[in-house]
């Protein structure tokens, strides 16, 4: 089931949540809507589900216009950020809910419902929790029950709103790998909203980067990471340093110097050396060293540049160099992306 989003605009009072957004989500893919809070990603997800009506534009499921159809008729599975499990029902009844509320004519028999629910509970590895109440489950378990409940109605589309947002770090990593494997098994067209770039890069087939109600870029994890279409995308996916044009005499031949432009360098694309390897190496002083597990983050002050620059080295490279705080070194950006300045961080 593919989803086409055509020219969707949504405003809340004076705030434009979505500004003429168009997007195609191919059948069977797992797509991430990635962006900072307030970028419109959750509104878009809720509009796809039918929980919110767009001011303008259309939503098509498999080429069929569903904009006017009620949320009940859209056959979507929706996993809410805080799961929204029915607190007065057991896990079993939660998962069975979508089947129980069907009109008599299309409702499966009690034993069919039972079998289906138990299969789903097996799928999410919680079959022994059937008689518990949501309050008795951990966050990760609730999340999986919410997913089983959404899948019970055999949705055409699965929509997940910040599915891992409320979990602690370790459970989050486990669950997102599990979701990826689950998707490889059942291949249901899925869209999930996240503000966590790592999550999007790891889980999604395709990433839609959004900012201020607009789609900035659509592509695979590699595409958006390696070829960011805008400074926003570059900045949002990974740590970046900014070099303003005027501080960059050595590289000014790449672009007209009078036009204000900004060069962006990812922190792990910076080489540090004690001697200048290149004419464009910049003399700097080490201000701070921070060890972060496998990586080491070094804060540098480049001569004549008011802003600090952050470089990330592997632990090995850091140990080989034996860098100390306060030392004079030379910094050489390996990969520089230049955007003409129309965007402020």
């Amino acid at each position: 089931m593919s989803i086409e989003i055509e020219n969707i605009t949504k405003t809340f009072g004076a705030f434009t949540a979505l500004n003429n957004v168009s997007l195609t989500i191919p059948s069977g893919e797992l797509v991430a809507l990635l962006g900072p809070s307030g970028c419109g990603k959750t509104s878009l997800l809720r509009i796809i589900a039918g929980l919110e009506t767009p001011d303008r534009g259309r939503i098509l499921f498999n080429g069929e216009d569903t904009t006017q159809s009620h949320v009940r008729e859209r056959r979507v599975g929706f996993v809410f950020q805080h799961y929204a499990l029915f607190r007065h029902l057991t896990v079993f009844d939660n998962v069975a809910f979508g089947l129980d509320v069907r009109p008599k004519a299309t409702r499966p028999s009690k034993s069919e419902i039972r079998e289906k629910v138990m299969n789903l509970l097996r799928l999410v590895q919680l079959e022994n929790m059937a008689t518990r109440y949501p309050a008795q489950l951990s966050g990760g378990q609730r999340q999986r029950i919410a997913l089983a409940r959404a899948l019970a109605v055999e949705p055409q589309v699965l929509l997940l709103d910040e599915p891992f947002g409320a979990l602690d770090a370790q459970v989050r990593v486990e669950l997102r790998r599990w979701l990826r494997r689950l998707h490889d098994e059942i291949h249901i067209t899925s869209v999930f909203v996240t503000h966590d770039q790592e999550e999007a890069l790891e889980v999604a087939d395709r990433i839609v980067v959004m900012n201020r109600g607009n789609v900035e870029q659509v592509g695979t994890a590699d595409e958006v990471y390696e070829n960011p279409a805008s400074p926003f995308v570059l900045n949002f996916l990974g740590n970046v340093n900014l070099f303003h044009g005027r501080h960059h005499q050595n590289e000014s031949e790449h672009h007209e110097p009078q036009k204000s432009s900004v060069s962006y360098v990812r922190s792990h694309d910076i080489d540090i050396d004690r001697t200048p390897q290149d004419s464009s190496a910049l003399k700097s002083e080490i201000k701070h060293i921070q060890k972060l597990g496998p990586a080491v983050r070094i804060t540098l002050a480049i001569e004549g540049n008011p802003d600090f620059v952050e470089a990330e080295l592997t632990r090995d490279a850091f140990q080989n160099l034996g860098l100390q705080r306060g030392e004079q070194v030379y910094v050489l950006p390996r990969q520089v992306r230049v955007f003409v300045e129309d965007y402020q961080i």
């Binding site: 929204a84 607190r87 809910f97 979508g98 509320v101 069907r102 959404a150």
Partner: peptide, 25 residues
């Protein structure tokens, strides 16, 4: 209202949502 929304997404009618989700809560 998330639980009500969840019920609607799962196909419940307005009355079913009220009697099965809102009222027990």
């Amino acid at each position: 209202k998330e639980e009500e929304e969840a019920a609607l997404v799962l196909g419940a009618t307005g009355l079913q949502t009220f009697f099965r989700v809102t009222l027990p809560n």
